[in-house]
Design a protein around this nucleic acid. Structure first.
Lengths: 111, 111
DNA sequence: TTTATATTTAACCATATGGTTAAGTATTCA
DNA sequence: TGAATACTTAACCATATGGTTAAATATAAA
């Protein structure tokens, strides 16, 4: 039985698969924000946002600091690096693909 | 109501969030393979693999060519580029973070 | 000390996901 | 033509996901 011990990547990519969460990440890239601030652009209840933030936090994509009753969220670089790191493995693949295509366009296959 | 018209990225990241599918991608990076070949390393039924391949295909991460009864899958560079493209947006973010950390280590905050 | 604010937790619901087994569909081989 | 091979589809199941409303918690303000 081949076991792929549940990777951190599972959570990171799952977290990234939701458009609300990607928008939250985009928002946090410029600066940290409170839950209320993050919720503002969305036609969604606070608990829904709260859940999205929990998913992002569990994935390690954001961290949270509590200042009184206010929770301030910030983006965490490491998890993003993890994701891009996995994808970078395949950079070679698509560069080869692209090169092959170019070759094909430039000169026909046989000779 | 802020509408994030369901992006291709939803499907791509969702597809990448499963370890079996990531393993399939890794396998396909070296060369195309049949369904049976792809199924071989996994302790999982054929229909399960078939579903995973469907998810990957729907996300645009793999394409399929039928040669008789044999289906040959191949990795598609474009969808991978899409994913890495989204993440690249934040490269600046983590580089700044890293630079700031370095700065902090080098000299104390005030002065 | 009451009230308002910021946020989470609980309970619920509908749909999606990841697996199963059984059956169906093409295609090839004998 | 009949049997084997390479798959997919169908039906089902348990759990996860993304949303809701209502209630709880913690802190701040009056």
């Amino acid at each position: 039985m081949v076991k792929y011990s549940s990777n951190q990547l599972d959570g990171i990519f799952a977290a990234l698969s939701d458009p609300t969460r990607r928008a939250i990440i985009r928002r946090l890239a410029s600066e940290g924000a409170t839950v209320t601030e993050l919720a503002e652009p969305f036609a969604m209840s606070m608990p829904a946002i709260s859940k999205h933030l929990r998913v992002l936090q569990d994935a390690g994509l954001v961290s949270r600091t509590k200042d009184g009753r206010i929770h301030r969220l910030q983006l965490e670089a490491d998890a993003l690096k993890e994701a891009i790191g996995w994808l970078e493995q395949y950079r070679q693949f698509w560069e080869i693909k692209l090169a092959a295509l170019e070759q094909f366009v430039t000169k026909p296959k046989k000779q």
